[in-house]
Write a protein that binds this DNA or RNA. Structure first.
Lengths: 209, 209
DNA sequence: AACAAATAAGTAAAATTATATCTATAAAAA
DNA sequence: TTTTTATAGATATAATTTTACTTATTTGTT
């Protein structure tokens, strides 16, 4: 097993969300075929993905829904808490701070940073907005593992460096730029521009899916 | 040529953003190797991607930066305007509405919709917030092609249906659910949960990239 | 109790995508 | 003008991912 495919990993949250949306009768079971139909995926792919997380279904029965949810949540690390800081309290940054849903995924935003003096000292939903100078120290002291970058493109790389200096091991980057980081630090880009490109390209096609 | 790889399509905006970040001396040229080094990609991959959009470089010279930018912008449809509506004026929806950067990508948000009566009638940066009832009519009248979904999971499918009823041909879905749509309608999911899964999984690994 | 039907799991094949190698071309230098 | 050198473009190889197929298991039915 060891290494799991990246695409599989990206599908797992979709399975989890679907399973959670089901009316939860205890001891209910669901077949791989049913999941596949609901999510418009291949039946075999679903089985393969689920077997990768260590779940096993029973023939003629399927997978016990509650077990599967627990398996997935454990595997995805939603049960273990990850501490994060947000850098860049602009439109997007504020929205990410205010959105409470990340807690369901094990993500706790414990602080925010901005270069704008007008924002520093504020509290947003209980999280302090601090000066950029304090970033590395704060991250080390608070044992922060994840940095969320919601700053303009030009500021992204320096902010990323500051996060890494603070010991952050994973960066979630909302800026449309490529960031360089040492090995062992994961840069995950939330690429809205790429999404838009796909939309825009689709609209230019006469008739396609 | 005909069909272009999805992964290629997703990389194109990255190239474009990088090229635009360059200090623009007129008639400046850049080699595929230089782009590859800056974005930490394979040199051959860059050439292959760029040739897919119809750009040709010259040996020992590379690609003319300005031409390349224009090519990419045209190919990605950033020069042709796409009219969009936003559904769901919550934290995220507001941030998307307030963020002005989408205009650079050819996306014009011309209206917003919400089920909350307290919001209806407001103007946000010049865009009206309307009732859900008016959605299909508005989309048809205003010739809207793109719908942006920033609603809770449970509301996503009905809202998506309403958008499609209004003639929308592409949906940008921020809700963590799979949406069903007829052929010819593109559903593009902005999958934050998947991104978080990758981050969380990485942090669980002892030492990996 | 035996059989049939349905399903999961494991294995193999196909398609897609990325990487490497090679060739030809064009500009710079001698 | 000739030679050298770096680069684009094309071709081929490799790796990854998806799909198809086969096998074995388990439950429900006769």
């Amino acid at each position: 097993m060891g290494s799991i495919s990246k695409h599989t990993l990206q599908r797992l949250p979709t399975y989890l969300a679907y399973l959670k949306s089901l009316p939860c009768a205890d001891n209910a079971c669901i077949s791989a075929a049913a999941i596949a139909a609901a999510l418009e995926l291949g039946e075999v792919q679903v089985r393969k993905d689920l077997s990768a997380v260590g779940s096993a279904g029973k023939p003629r029965i399927g997978y016990p829904v509650n077990d599967l949810i627990q398996h997935l949540e454990y595997f995805l690390g939603y049960s273990t808490r990850n501490r994060a800081v947000l850098v860049g309290v602009g439109n997007l940054g504020l929205a990410l701070l205010s959105y409470g849903g990340f807690a369901d995924y094990g993500l706790d935003i414990v602080g925010a940073f901005d270069s704008n003096p007008a924002l520093i000292g504020l509290q947003i939903d209980g999280r302090p907005v601090l000066s950029m100078d304090e970033l590395p120290t704060f991250c080390q002291r608070e044992n922060v593992q994840i940095g969320i970058l919601a700053v303009p493109s030009a500021a992204a790389q320096p902010c990323c460096d500051a996060l890494i200096a603070g010991g952050v091991r994973a960066v979630w980057n909302f800026a449309p730029v490529h960031l360089k980081a040492p090995d062992g630090v994961l840069i995950q880009r939330e690429n809205m521009a790429s999404s838009l490109a796909l939309l825009s390209y689709h609209l230019k096609q006469p008739e396609r899916n």
